[in-house]
Amino acid sequence: MVLIEAVRAEENISIGRPLKPGVYVPTLCFFDPETEDIDTESIARHTIRLAQAGVTGIATQGSNGEAVHLTHRERELVTTTTRSALDHAGFTNVPVIVGCGAQSVRETIELCSEAAEAGGDYALVLPPSYYATLFAPSSETIIKYFTEVADASPIPIIIYNFPGAVNGMDLSSDIILSLSQHPRIVGVKLTCGNTGKLNRIAAATRSSTTKNTHGSANPDFLVLAGSADFAIQSLIAGGHGILAGLANIAPKACIRTVELYREGKIAEAQRMQEVVSQGDWTAIRGGVVGVKSGLQSWLGYGGFTRSPLPRPTGEQSKAWKEGYRDLMALEKTLL
């Protein structure tokens, strides 16, 4: 019985679509402008556009995907639509990461199971924070939370460190490295912007015990920057790429910035990073409202966020469009 359980545990951590270094996109969720119902046609079209641009992977239910505005059933619909669009367009090898964070271990595991059933390959999980003042000590509570989720989840876990979304909770490199030892915790997204932390995690996990057999091109523990404005900085620090909302608007610029650095064309990468960083500042200030507005202004689709988020004023839309101007000019030059 023990041997059978060990074999099953080993099977449970197998990965069909490995995580590779590159540019990942936390994709947007689109709604009907009148009813606010899920617009599956736009989701599919946007997914294919990103895949054709060459992104490495796509994440649903991230901060840009308005997961907090969706029911469980709607989350499944978005992920199913995304996976189906990729497969039908011939991008069967592109992994889908699904945001699954919730305040309880029970619901997080439920979301992970639903994500797997909908075609998700990995679960992106924020730490719980609502009762953070009752965590004693916080590190022990967080480690227990991620461990219990990873033990029960049918798909591997990626830690999502985003202090702005969890009442300022910022996971230390010590906590993340401790969690990285779990065989089903396979990466981290660092939206905290701390490249020192990123460097410590990347350096330590390079020599960790191998979790998969996919070869050196697929790191055992994927370390991603959570924003496009420090893409090459994160690569210098040993990171593997980015999972950045700006790639919804300008995927080719994000990809080319990373490629130039890897090709050793540092000066060119730096110049492109400057344009990307300026565009990302517009995205950061406007949030998902501004990203959708920019997409609508420059590419003719995007629409609005779900209420209670506000619809942009004419002045806001004009300002955000202008903020993306240089970035979109760059994007149009890239094949």
Score class of each variant (00 low, 15 high):
30 F>G: 00
31 F>E: 05
31 F>W: 01
31 F>R: 05
31 F>Q: 03
33 P>T: 06
33 P>L: 04
33 P>F: 01
34 E>R: 13
35 T>Y: 03
35 T>R: 04
35 T>D: 08
35 T>N: 00
37 D>F: 11
37 D>P: 00
37 D>Q: 14
37 D>L: 15
38 I>G: 10
39 D>L: 13
39 D>H: 12
41 E>T: 14
41 E>L: 15
41 E>A: 15
42 S>Q: 04
42 S>Y: 01
42 S>E: 02
43 I>N: 08
43 I>M: 10
44 A>V: 11
45 R>F: 14
46 H>D: 08
47 T>D: 10
47 T>P: 06
49 R>C: 11
49 R>E: 09
51 A>E: 09
51 A>R: 03
51 A>V: 09
52 Q>C: 11
52 Q>M: 13
53 A>S: 14
53 A>M: 13
53 A>R: 07
53 A>V: 12
54 G>V: 03
55 V>N: 01
55 V>C: 03
56 T>N: 06
56 T>W: 03
56 T>Q: 13
56 T>P: 01
56 T>H: 00
57 G>L: 04
57 G>C: 06
58 I>R: 00
58 I>F: 06
58 I>V: 02
59 A>C: 14
60 T>Y: 01
61 Q>T: 06
61 Q>K: 07
62 G>A: 08
64 N>F: 09
65 G>H: 02
65 G>W: 03
68 V>T: 12
69 H>E: 06
69 H>V: 02
69 H>M: 08
71 T>W: 00
71 T>S: 09
72 H>P: 11
72 H>C: 12
73 R>K: 14
74 E>L: 07
75 R>G: 09
75 R>H: 06
76 E>S: 12
76 E>Q: 12
77 L>Y: 07
77 L>R: 10
77 L>W: 00
79 T>M: 05
79 T>C: 05
79 T>E: 00
80 T>P: 04
80 T>F: 05
81 T>I: 03
81 T>E: 02
81 T>C: 09
81 T>A: 10
82 T>C: 13
82 T>Y: 07
82 T>N: 06
83 R>V: 07
84 S>W: 09
85 A>Q: 02
85 A>D: 11
86 L>P: 04
86 L>M: 08
87 D>F: 12
88 H>Y: 10
90 G>D: 11
90 G>C: 14
90 G>Q: 12
90 G>I: 13
91 F>E: 11
91 F>S: 13
91 F>C: 12
92 T>Y: 14
94 V>T: 15
95 P>C: 15
96 V>H: 08
97 I>H: 11
98 V>T: 10
98 V>H: 07
98 V>R: 02
98 V>C: 13
99 G>K: 03
99 G>R: 10
99 G>W: 01
99 G>E: 12
100 C>Y: 08
100 C>N: 14
100 C>T: 15
101 G>A: 10
